[in-house]
Lab assay of single mutants.
Amino acid sequence: AEKTGIVNVSSSLNVREGASTSSKVIGSLSGNTKVTIVGEEGAFYKIEYKGSHGYVAKEYIKDIKDE
């Protein structure tokens, strides 16, 4: 049951290796980017990222929809 969301930041949002603010940053997404959410862990969504997965803070994702 995948969902999509939109990155809701003015600059960019860090994509992390794990569901923690201390996890390594593996990339970033600019505002209004559409993401595919494959799961959630605590305050983070697990998303599809560059052929693999990454984690982003839930508070910066809006317009969550079921695909």
Rank of each mutant, 00 (worst) to 15 (best):
G42A: 13
G18I: 08
N14R: 13
V56C: 04
V15M: 02
V25C: 05
G18Q: 15
H53M: 08
R16Q: 12
R16M: 12
S28R: 12
V56I: 13
K50E: 15
E40L: 09
K46E: 06
S11L: 07
E48R: 13
V56A: 04
I6D: 02
N32T: 08
R16V: 08
A1Y: 11
V7L: 06
K50S: 12
V38A: 06
I37F: 01
H53P: 06
E2T: 13
E67W: 02
V15S: 00
V38P: 00
A43D: 11
G51Y: 07
S11P: 15
V25Q: 05
V35D: 00
T33Y: 15
V56W: 00
T21V: 08
I47S: 00
E41D: 14
S11T: 10
G42F: 15
K46M: 13
G27L: 03
Y45N: 01
E2S: 12
K50M: 06
I26C: 04
E40H: 09
L13W: 02
N8D: 14
S20Y: 14
T36N: 13
D66R: 02
V35W: 01
N14K: 15
K58G: 03
E59H: 15
I26S: 03
Y45T: 01
K3W: 15
Y49M: 03
S10M: 11
E17I: 11
T36E: 05
I64G: 12
S22K: 11
G31C: 05
R16S: 10
L13Y: 03
V9K: 10
V38I: 13
Y55T: 00
Y55G: 00
K34L: 12
L29D: 00
I64C: 05
I61K: 01
K50G: 10
S10H: 08
E41F: 15
L13M: 04
E59A: 10
G18Y: 11
K24S: 06
T33N: 08
I61Q: 01
V56H: 00
Y45H: 03
G18W: 11
D63A: 07
V25M: 07
Y60W: 09
S22G: 12
N32R: 07
G27A: 05
L13N: 02
A43N: 11
E48V: 13
N14A: 13
I6R: 05
L13D: 02
I37T: 01
I47W: 00
S20A: 15
K62Y: 08
A43V: 07
I37D: 00
G42W: 05
Y45V: 04
T36Y: 15
V7G: 03
D63N: 09
E67T: 13
V38H: 06
I47T: 01
E2R: 14
I37A: 01
A19K: 03
T36Q: 15
K24H: 14
Y55D: 00
V25S: 10
Y49G: 01
E67Q: 12
S30Y: 07
G39F: 06
K65E: 10
S22D: 11
T4V: 14
I37V: 05
Y45R: 01
E67G: 12
K46T: 04
D63P: 15
S20K: 13
G54S: 02
L29S: 01
A43I: 09
V7R: 01
I6L: 11
S52A: 14
S11Q: 10
Y55A: 01
T36S: 04
A1M: 09
N32M: 14
E48H: 14
A43T: 06
V56F: 01
E40I: 13
K58I: 10
T4L: 08
G51L: 06
D63H: 15
V56P: 00
T33K: 07
N32P: 05
A43Y: 08
T4I: 08
S12Y: 14
K58Y: 03
G39Y: 04
K58M: 12
V38N: 05
E40Q: 11
E59V: 09
S52H: 14
K65H: 15
G31Y: 10
S23Y: 08
S30R: 10
S11K: 08
G39W: 04
I64P: 07
H53R: 05
D63S: 09
S52D: 06
E40C: 05
E17C: 05
E17G: 10
Y49Q: 01
G51P: 09
K65D: 15
S20I: 08
K24R: 11
G51V: 05
S12N: 11
V7Y: 02
G5M: 03
V35F: 02
A43C: 05
K3H: 14
Y60T: 04
E67L: 12
K24P: 14
I64H: 06
A1F: 08
D66S: 15
I37C: 02
R16H: 11
T21L: 08
S30C: 06
L29E: 01
K50F: 10
K65L: 13
K58C: 04
N14T: 09
Y60A: 07
S12V: 10
